[in-house]
Design a protein around this nucleic acid. Structure first.
Lengths: 226, 226
DNA sequence: TGACACAGGATTGGATCCAAAATCTAGGCC
DNA sequence: GGCCTAGATTTTGGATCCAATCCTGTGTCA
């Protein structure tokens, strides 16, 4: 484990928060899929750390709903049913307009320009994996001026726990709906730039609702991973 | 630390989940207040365990928003500003009607009877501390048939993180509003028993909104604890 | 041939030990 | 007398070791 120290240097020290970030990222990238088991020793070795920070990280992720634990059986990435994902989208429909309303008055012209740029890149882009990333960046970007921690954390959590299913949907047939998404993003963005909170909230809520309904039409997304 | 094992036996083994429950309870009972520091060794000794499960428990609570951590400085119970509590209540206004809608069709007649009983006990009761407990039991009881974990967890979290401020408000002057609370509970409960989701959601949302506005009229609740 | 039981390996849970960082205290200096 | 600095103490962070539990593979017996 001499090379460990090097890996350690790369990552800048493997604190439990860093391990949590690493694991969260693996799950978001779909390198850890629902049902996958997470072995403490594996992760520890990969990051050149001991199992202890891994255990703390797993506890954090557990509280975030990104992993589930069974005593003496270890951690897994939880599988969500279609109904659970549906409810999570309903939660998003209600929470994200609130986050947007909190953020909107505080967004600067620079922020607007950044969001315009992200949306342009979404429209230019054909790659589905890149789309997922930019779509997230667009939405969370519109909330970025909201500094209420519980709200931010909760919104991020809802995105994180459904990331796998978003990806599966987009990969499966969501491509054809891309132009609708873009049109809706444009409506939201215009309202944001006008600082019209009422419109922005309404358009956002509709956007999430329609996405949710679309998801409900693709039950295959929730089938067994392999 | 020979007596440790005995304490251990009392609590039935001090796993990290148990430590987390213990700490969560301390915070909910206001024995740990916003700003208070939590020393790992203290808790470990009190529960007759080593510091390790305490550390894991603190990580869980951190992810739940019940504690905050600074590297090498330890854990504290976070202080919330009036604005933060206000936003948390807005989150409740939106999320709890959803939880109620999910739960309502699944509540049995037994559940209804139980809720009636809880509400009766609230009305009979003068003790403020007991009121906090029963009020929580009433509301979470109406959501109890909803088995969507992310939603349940989030609602519980919102209640937990504002518990101290609810207590401060009730202790300070909320007493005079008790009859309003009871009337609103009655409206909600009747709608629940009728299985009228629309009414139930509307009454619940209004109930939380009015509570939030009331809280905003008592800025002293958010003053320094001591 | 199938099902059950036992044993060995693998994996997690918990305790103790050591290192690093922060806080507190005391002393010196301006 | 107040402020700054240096050392000691306290507290947290991380690693390693041991115990408890679970999974797996093999063997035996019906």
């Amino acid at each position: 484990m001499t090379e460990a120290k090097q890996t350690d240097a790369d990552t800048g020290g493997a604190t439990s928060a860093r391990v949590a970030t690493y694991l969260r990222d693996l799950i978001l990238r779909d390198e850890l899929k629902p049902g996958d088991r997470i072995r403490q020793e594996d992760i520890a070795a990969r990051l050149g750390a001991s199992r202890l920070p891994v255990r703390e990280a797993l506890r954090m992720l557990e509280a975030e709903g990104l992993t589930e634990h069974a005593r003496h059986k270890g951690a897994r990435v939880p599988r969500l049913s279609m109904h659970e994902v549906d409810v999570i989208y309903r939660m998003r429909e209600r929470l994200e307009p609130l986050a947007l309303a909190e953020s909107l008055p505080l967004l600067t012209d620079d922020d607007h320009a950044r969001l315009e740029d992200v949306q342009r890149r979404i429209e230019d882009n054909g790659d589905l994996d890149r789309f997922l990333e930019l779509d997230r960046e667009f939405h969370l970007g519109t909330y970025s001026a909201c500094h209420i921690d519980p709200l931010n954390a909760m919104v991020a959590r809802l995105w994180n726990s459904t990331q796998h299913y978003r990806r599966a949907y987009v990969a499966m047939g969501g491509r054809s709906r891309m132009w609708v998404v873009n049109a809706e993003h444009r409506l939201i963005l215009d309202a944001v730039v006008r600082r019209d909170s009422t419109d922005a909230e309404r358009f956002l809520e509709g956007h999430i609702r329609r996405t949710r309904i679309e998801l409900g039409h693709h039950p295959a997304v929730f089938g067994e991973p392999s």
